[in-house]
Computed example of a mutant assay.
Amino acid sequence: MSLARNSWRSLRVYRMNFLLILLGTVVQAVAMLAVWQALLSEASPSRLAGFTWHEMKGYLLVAFAANALVSGYTDLLLAGRVLSGMVALDLTKPVDFQLARWAETLGFLGVELLAVGSIGVMMISVVAPVPMPTGWQGLLFVASLCAVVPLKFGIVYLTGVACFWTQNYQGVSWARAGIAGVLSGSLVPVELYPAWLQSLCQMSPFPSMVSTPALIFVGRVRDGEAALLFCWQVVWIASLWLIGRVAWSRGLRQITVHGG
């Protein structure tokens, strides 16, 4: 809990960095809404590969929320600990490094949820109301969106640990963002990809971070299929956590501490 509180306090100090990162996500969401509105207005009859404008609005708003959670701020701080050498101090503390970074992520989460909720309401008021899922579908959507947090943490954690080998943060982060943008379906729904690219996406954890909660929200998947997609999210959460622990143990072999 103390690590989570410290994370929240650090956001108050570096709030401008956090706001700029969030602003980038908002600009992307607004641009995507404008692009898809133009595409669907030209489609006949107002449908593209089965997506209506109302469905696409809901899909893109969920994509915005998923992209804003566990922001690049978490990514930056984690990689910074490795590159600055602060990770050597972490080794002297009786705290699991991965669990400590997870606690910090939860500390940022409260502020991120508040920001996403506020901006989401404003965006919905501009693009007109979006139908909300109810009942079993609504519960599955909430569970699926909550699963996005540990999923994204798993990816971000691996990106930070990769700095043990790369000694560079920006290149790895940009590569991850580019790959995630395509494979997660945040830019274009995975359903619109050719079959070979859909298969490639499904072999990765990225669709579980955006496509799964978005499809459940708009009702493109229901009941058993939606539950199965949520189960895959849980499988990827466990897998990424275990891979992260292996990567950390291997990364420790790369540490060189000068002065003793």
Rank of each mutant, 00 (worst) to 15 (best):
R5Y: 15
S7T: 10
V13M: 12
M16F: 14
L20T: 10
I21L: 13
G24N: 03
Q28N: 13
V30F: 02
M32Y: 12
L33I: 02
Q37I: 05
E42P: 04
A43Q: 04
L48E: 05
K57D: 02
G58I: 00
L76R: 11
L77P: 05
V82S: 00
L83P: 01
M86A: 15
L91G: 07
D96P: 05
Q98K: 09
Q98Y: 07
W102F: 13
W102K: 01
T105S: 13
L109P: 08
V111W: 14
V111F: 15
V111I: 14
E112V: 04
E112D: 09
L114A: 14
S118Q: 04
V121S: 11
M122D: 00
M123G: 00
P131L: 00
M132R: 12
P133M: 05
P133E: 08
T134M: 12
Q137T: 03
Q137W: 04
G138M: 07
L139G: 15
L140C: 08
F141I: 07
V142T: 09
S144Y: 02
L145F: 10
C146K: 02
V156F: 06
Y157K: 01
L158F: 04
V161C: 03
C163D: 04
G171K: 06
A177Q: 13
A180L: 11
L187H: 04
V188P: 04
E191G: 14
P194N: 03
W196C: 08
W196S: 11
Q198G: 09
S199F: 12
Q202W: 15
M203I: 14
M203C: 13
P207Q: 04
S208V: 01
T212F: 12
F217Y: 10
F217W: 06
D223F: 12
G224V: 11
E225F: 09
E225T: 12
A226R: 02
L228W: 14
F230N: 05
W232G: 13
V235N: 02
I237H: 04
L242T: 09
R245T: 07
V246L: 11
S249Y: 11
R250V: 09
R253K: 12
T256L: 09
V257S: 08
G260R: 01
